[in-house]
Design a protein around this nucleic acid. Structure first.
Lengths: 361, 361
DNA sequence: CTCCGCTTCTAGAACGTTCTATGTCGTAGT
DNA sequence: ACTACGACATAGAACGTTCTAGAAGCGGAG
């Protein structure tokens, strides 16, 4: 594919070089390279051969400079978040299909969002796609004065902002529905505290419990978004079951996978069988959840659809297509793995012998 | 920072606009914007104000087009690998400090390395930095005919390729040294099979054991790079300790963190105390290892130094600075966390009661 | 033979920068 | 008073591409 003809690294070949070698004008070479009508089959062939021999590659920057359109979407993502990685994958394919290209700009511990956005602004992007941005809604809104902005995986209510996110409440509802279908009734929610999305997931839990007539069973345990938060919450649950002789839950819907993993860890160490005695559902379908020894039933956000929507929306804005709502909410879906099972008779009752070790922790 | 003066999204302001508003020539504006000598304090002030009022941003592409130098480094990374994320972070800061900019190009399940590289080639990068590339060494070498190529975190022996990687053998040696210093003697290595770097880590294990006069204790258990591989290996170890009444190891040095986590999981479930009965060392210092409930002692690759070296090397090639070796090998370092502890008397001997549950798995 | 229309090709002007060369000051040296 | 010089400013050509307008060639209709 890459011909080794000209090993010299001196100057990269330009249209002029190709034109000279093929014995035609620069304009004609441009026509052939872009594969637009206006050249005979014969010269087309000749030009392509010359280009190949020289190892010619069009210079994107010069190309963009000339044409007012850049067909370029800027993407800001967190280099740490596995979830963003999935989204970026989807963005590439969606943009590709629409004939747009992507420029990535990473947020790292040493490179804040502002710099990431700044570098994209200089790059002639026609729109910005921001994955889970930390900036305030008003700061984001200000950006829209320069170019369309699509916020992904985060809520942001503003008339100028487009938002693509998952229906977090529905996700938790699905988790609860699943657990109820398995026969569970004492279902606890370990929440995400003040994390983005946490409020909505709490709401989803309450609604679902209510819908199933389980209002009396509603129990929200304070959690967070790290493994430790989940671990703490489960310790609290087990302790109160032990001391106050409260019946322990038979199922737990956790705010996210990380927290769920902390929860699982404590359950294992306490000798509580999962899913034998307690079923656990996470949220995110992160890589962690898929690990065979974790094998966590969880709620997946459809990253593919989200990125497709984000790209579509960005392009709609660029091209001035009228759109209905500013907020696109995709449905999440349940991924059943190994941490949920039908409730067996009696397993719902306190099992002192199984919970005995809980104090060790 | 971003003035809202001109909400119109029509045309982004150019040097000409700023020049007109400030009442000076385009060239002078260019001088001021680039902050090079050749403008009076007074007009500098006036130009900057005009630029700010218009919300002017230099157009990177036009800028690059004009100047032969692009000061741009192309980076190919896998969007899935947490490790690459760390490297990218480091690359940004290193490049920044050297006055270079980065263009990222991601490898995703649907976008192979060739495309990632191709897009960078069109972007006028002056050098390529490839993180853990999959392409064959000869394919990589061919690229060097066009521009300097630095391969990171992977071995590649070729006279035209620069390589930055970690001394994998030293890493395992440090792990063994640490364990020996804690009093351990029966130290097993769960290896990485045919994974890149596995052979060298095996070698490091053998050398270190030999250096400590523990040749008779050398025991390499077949592993791999996933959690399951580690789990399987530990099961084998425990089984053979039980059936053949072989003394079980008091410490395990595992190929990588993922495999170590699988190993830890099996140990926990088998009721073997870590680090009470068995110490475990991982490799990579991945995010997983740092999780509080995992808290794995591990070997860290110095991503910061690796990325600094990669950038430095790329720039050296670009600027024609002569360099000594083509291969830069950085030393890894031990990160002591909670899965290693001094060997206690007697803990090295078979503990049937502790291993009893191993068969359950 | 002229004129039209078609296809194929080309010259030359953009695009937004930077760079080179040159110009215009005012001040100081002879 | 003439030159010399530094500091500041500008005109205009690049960079590699695309785009607009038009030229050249050619076959066929009038």
């Amino acid at each position: 594919m890459i011909t080794a003809e000209h090993p010299g690294r001196g100057r990269r070949p330009t249209l002029t070089d190709v034109a000279a070698r093929a014995g035609v004008s620069v304009a004609l070479v441009s026509i052939v390279i872009r594969d637009v009508p206006g050249a005979s089959a014969e010269s087309r062939q000749r030009v392509l051969q010359a280009a190949d021999e020289l190892g010619y590659r069009p210079d994107t920057r010069a190309r963009l400079l000339r044409s007012s359109r850049s067909r370029l979407l800027g993407v800001v993502f967190g280099v740490q978040h596995a979830f963003h990685g999935d989204l970026v994958s989807g963005l590439y394919t969606a943009a590709d299909a629409a004939g747009y290209a992507l420029t990535l700009s990473a947020v790292t511990p040493a490179r804040d969002e502002q710099r990431a956005v700044g570098s994209l602004l200089q790059d002639r992007c026609e729109a910005l796609i921001l994955l889970g941005p930390h900036a305030s809604t008003s700061a984001l809104a200000q950006l829209t004065e320069r170019l369309p902005v699509v916020v992904v995986a985060r809520a942001a209510r503003h008339r100028a902002l487009d938002v693509v996110r998952t229906a977090d409440n529905e996700g938790v509802q699905q988790a609860v529905d699943h657990l109820v279908a398995l026969g569970h009734r004492r279902i606890v929610h370990i929440d995400g505290g003040r994390a983005p999305g946490a409020a909505e997931r709490r709401r989803g839990y309450r609604d679902a419990m209510h819908r199933h007539g389980l209002d009396s069973q509603i129990h929200i345990e304070a959690g967070g978004l790290t493994e430790d938060d989940g671990a703490d919450a489960v310790r609290t649950l087990l302790d109160s079951a032990l001391h106050n002789s409260v019946a322990p839950p038979t199922a737990i819907a956790v705010f996210n996978d990380r927290s769920a993993i902390g929860a699982l860890d404590v359950l294992h160490r306490a000798g509580v069988a999962v899913p034998g005695s307690i079923s656990v559902v996470g949220y995110d379908d992160s890589r962690l959840a898929r690990l065979s020894h974790v094998n966590l039933t969880t709620i997946a956000q459809d990253t593919e659809q989200m990125s497709a929507l984000a790209v579509a929306r960005a392009i709609a804005r660029i091209e001035g297509t009228p759109v209905r709502q500013r907020e696109l909410v995709t449905p999440p879906h349940l991924v059943v793995r190994g941490t949920t099972a039908p409730m067996v008779e009696g397993s719902g009752h306190a099992q002192p012998e199984a919970l005995g070790q809980a104090r060790v922790l």
